[in-house]
Simulated scan of single mutants.
Amino acid sequence: MLDIKVNKHLFRALAKFSNLAYSCFTFGGGDLVPTAEEYMALLRCSKIQADRVYSRAVNVPTFLKKLISITGMSEQWVAARIKQKGDRKCIPWKNLRDLILAHPDTKNKVDVFALSVYRLVVFPKALGHIDEAVTNLFDLLDKRVTPVPTILAETFRSLNERQRVGEGRFIGCAQLFLAWFHSHLWKVDKVSYRVFSENYSPLKEIVAIPRRDDISEEKWMVILQDLQEEDIE
């Protein structure tokens, strides 16, 4: 997912086809909507639980305790770096970046890097910071709870907010959203997508396909408006 280039012109054009009334994307010849099943296939996480992502467990560890567990650092080290940003607690990305580069424990280093990816790429809400909300989700991953419904919910919420006010930064996983859109255009791309088998990664195939990035937003608007049902799988 880190290798997926976000085409800002395509993304902005797509966002304008968001249908608030029906929570889908309406083009010239049909409607499209990302589903949990599609996102699970793209992320290859269909074998983990899908129905507990919003369940609140009892005795949830504090932000401090979760960061201690993820980073493997002392309580004093973590407490000194926790900041208050608005109504939520967070830790600056630069502190985690330095930790990734210098941490002696490989598992903790990978966990800190993965946590950073979730906040900076999947849920880029507080720029330059990793907040409490994403650590709550990250903590559930070890319990085999899929993040897909949360990713979808944030995608729809952010798109709807942009449509409502006519502007604003997209807070959601733009890379996955664009990968989902491209996966429906196999007829346009002249690529027949293979079955999602155990040894096949649709994201890797999507990344490997060369795509033009010199098409303007206005041209994308025309292309999307002209899409017909037979163009979309």
Rank of each mutant, 00 (worst) to 15 (best):
W93S: 14
W93I: 15
Y118Q: 06
A102I: 03
L115F: 03
D98M: 10
L141P: 04
T150A: 15
E161W: 07
N59Y: 08
D105V: 14
P61R: 08
V165A: 01
G166L: 09
N136G: 09
S116R: 04
D105S: 13
C90E: 00
G86K: 06
N108C: 13
D131Y: 05
K143C: 14
S23I: 08
G28L: 13
M73Y: 11
N59M: 10
K109R: 15
G72Q: 03
Y39E: 02
N95Y: 14
R81S: 11
P104V: 01
T62I: 01
E132T: 10
F25H: 00
P124D: 01
T155M: 12
A126C: 14
A153R: 07
A102L: 10
S69E: 09
D105L: 12
D105I: 13
A126H: 09
R88N: 06
G86I: 06
G72M: 08
A41C: 10
V148D: 06
A153V: 01
D105M: 11
A50P: 10
T155E: 03
H103D: 14
G166M: 07
P61F: 08
L137E: 06
A80M: 14
A126K: 11
M40S: 15
T146W: 06
C90F: 03
L101R: 03
I130D: 00
D142R: 14
L99P: 12
K109Q: 13
H103N: 15
E38C: 07
P104W: 02
R52T: 00
S55T: 03
L101Y: 00
A36D: 14
I100N: 01
T71R: 08
R52A: 05
A36W: 09
G86N: 03
D139E: 10
P124R: 01
K125Y: 13
A50M: 12
P34C: 03
V122M: 11
V110P: 07
K47I: 05
R144V: 10
V122P: 03
C24W: 08
Q163H: 04
Q84D: 04
E75F: 11
A41D: 11
K107G: 12
G128A: 11
R164Q: 13
K65V: 08
D142I: 11
R144P: 07
E75R: 14
V112R: 05
L159V: 07
L159S: 03
V78P: 02
E37D: 15
W93A: 14
Y39F: 15
V117M: 09
H129Q: 08
L127K: 10
I100R: 01
A57S: 08
R88P: 05
